[in-house]
Design a protein around this nucleic acid. Structure first.
Lengths: 85, 85
DNA sequence: AAGTCCAATACCTTTTCGATCTGGCAATAC
DNA sequence: GTATTGCCAGATCGAAAAGGTATTGGACTT
């Protein structure tokens, strides 16, 4: 698991759309698609349900999303705290 | 910044010694040394003071350590929460 | 049934990361 | 005072991971 995967997951969850998430993240769509898949493989559960119109959070995704957002927020706060010394 | 860098930092902070930290992490010593240096570069501050006998936390390191430990703990908890669904 | 919209796949390139080896510096021993 | 030991830093090389482009496959819409 990597921080990039967590960021990709949060962005896709917010956009409900891999293509839009990829644009926001400034990477190509397959890169996001692959990292989401790797993350799901590592967690042993699908995080999204794939529909013809986009991506919807699965139960596991609903559990993971707030925790992932908190981790990213904590990391940003820690970084700022160090830089402000 | 990567999760590996955060893990390396926490381990070196606990061991106060790059070589011992590398052994605990099952990687070579220069790999740890370089990642710590990269992390310091990204944060813009030294996290350790280098002495002839090891590494001591700097003020910035003292600020970063508990936050880094919390992030790793939260990540582990999030992973377990998803796997337990 | 055709068009479109989306994610997934294939293939290739590039970047990143770790291992090994070497150098340098400080403390200790003699 | 020199030599040895222990430690971190740097350079080089090879392997693994990640991203980009192009394309395919599937499902709604009309």
């Amino acid at each position: 698991m990597s921080l990039a995967q967590i960021r990709y997951f949060v962005t896709v969850a917010e956009e409900k759309h891999v293509g839009r998430a990829a644009r926001r993240l400034c990477v190509a769509q397959p890169a996001v698609s692959r990292q989401i898949r790797n993350l799901e493989g590592e967690l042993g559960r699908p995080l999204f349900a794939r529909t013809a119109r986009g991506m919807t959070l699965s139960p596991a995704g609903e559990v993971f999303l707030p925790r992932a957002q908190a981790i990213l927020a904590d990391l940003a706060a820690a970084t700022h705290a160090v830089r402000r010394i």
